[in-house]
Write a protein that binds this DNA or RNA. Structure first.
Lengths: 114, 114
DNA sequence: AGCACTGTATGATGGCCATCGAACACTGGG
DNA sequence: CCCAGTGTTCGATGGCCATCATACAGTGCT
């Protein structure tokens, strides 16, 4: 039974930026990284809130992964929700597409042959 | 009268990459730079071949400008043609848009309020 | 309480990239 | 031929960023 007393120490909720408040340069910079592209594609292949941060198979350590998710949050690409010890993720498809039409589609399209 | 003899020293023609041969990551990285975005926007505001490299008003020196145009060429964003001592530029709108639909429109759209 | 799991924060490191100054090359005109 | 204009190349520099190892903080289970 979760106590909600005064001096209780919470885990700080993740700070989000709405896509509408994201500068174009921030969005492009966030997407100009192979690891983050892979994270976004993995995310798109699963239902919302299905994946926790550790559920992604990228060739970097936990620290770097955490950093990448921070960048994705700042770019309005990912929303996170805490559930137990895990931090579940959701791709902000509609919202991001409304701000930058077509951009997310480009990344998700697999025609990135070269 | 321009002689075209054998041992004549030409200026090496600029090396271009067709947008179809450009990886997504290359395109995004090329666009994730404020100076290059400004170059592209300036270019879009003028007719094809209207501007030479020195005709752009960006806050960097000649060397850096030359480097940026090299990046834009490699990303399939700009085509260059030599005319006299000048190197004229053209934005590859249709070709680039065919490869990355909507991406160029995003950059050219002025709604980059923040 | 103790523990395993998960994620974040903190340096430290290495590499890539944007920039500059200077030198060099090509072009066209006086 | 000299010169002014244009653009590239080279070496050096500084900064930003991705990564790591480590330590730390929360959460829930036993």
């Amino acid at each position: 039974m979760p106590e909600q007393a005064a001096g209780m120490s919470h885990r700080p909720a993740p700070v989000h930026t709405h896509p509408d408040d994201v500068p174009l340069l921030t969005a492009l910079s966030a997407l100009a990284d192979p690891v983050r592209i892979q994270l976004i594609r993995d995310l798109a292949r699963h239902p919302d809130w299905a994946l926790s941060c550790s559920g992604f198979d990228v060739p970097v350590g936990r620290a770097a992964k955490s950093h990448h998710f921070s960048v994705l949050r700042d770019a309005g690409l990912v929303e996170q929700r805490d559930q137990g010890p895990k931090r579940l993720n959701r791709l902000r498809r509609e919202e991001f597409d409304a701000r930058f039409p077509g951009l997310l589609d480009l990344v998700l399209r697999a025609d990135d042959g070269e």
